[in-house]
């Protein structure tokens, strides 16, 4: 879809910044706020910009995890914003590996909205929130193991193929 803007003055080319305005965001594995900038329509965004500004004034992230109403300590539903099957399925798998968890499932209420719900029901030994936190920690450990093994395998392969 093409959007044409007729401008009288050519935008000044990228200038070197003597006083650099650095975003706090790192270049890789971006926080979700970056998505907003890319998908905003060129023309009709006057109102939206004001809303964005109010929420992200201090460049802090919007709260992306919410406890849904009707949750008890051992049976809770969480709502994640800007998450989908990528994290949902992986998180569900890891949380299900926890023997204290009786039930864990994730669902995406509507594909047009970027929301994901996770329901965790635990036995009496632990709370749902603890299970969720353990799941997130286990996921990070898993990523570390994958990275290490991948780098080792690559080195072995490169060494084997060059010799």
């Amino acid at each position: 879809m093409a959007k044409a803007k007729v401008k009288k003055d050519e935008p000044t080319a990228a200038e070197p910044a003597s006083d650099v305005v650095m975003d706090e965001a790192p270049t890789s594995h971006q926080p979700e706020a970056a998505d907003d900038g890319m998908s905003v329509d060129a023309n009709e965004n006057e109102d939206d910009i004001e809303e964005e500004e109010d929420e992200e004034e201090e460049e802090e992230e919007v709260q992306r995890v919410r406890l849904l109403p009707g949750s008890t300590p051992t049976a809770a539903s969480f709502e994640f914003l800007n998450e989908g099957h990528t994290l949902g399925n992986a998180l569900r798998y890891i949380i299900m590996k926890n023997p204290e968890v009786e039930f864990c499932a994730y669902a995406i209420p509507h594909p047009s909205e970027n929301k994901m719900n996770v329901r965790i029901q635990t036995f009496e030994g632990t709370t749902a929130i603890e299970a969720l936190q353990k799941g997130l920690r286990d996921l990070q450990e898993l990523c570390d193991v994958v990275t290490d093994k991948f780098i080792d395998a690559r080195e072995r392969f490169v060494a084997a193929s060059s010799s």
Partner: peptide
């Protein structure tokens, strides 16, 4: 691939902080 793994780890890390915030 390495960047993808790191990305997943960072997502989980950020969400962990968010869950603490929520609590």
């Amino acid at each position: 691939f390495l960047e993808a793994v790191a990305h997943l780890k960072k997502r989980a890390q950020d969400l962990e902080k968010q869950v603490i915030n929520m609590v």
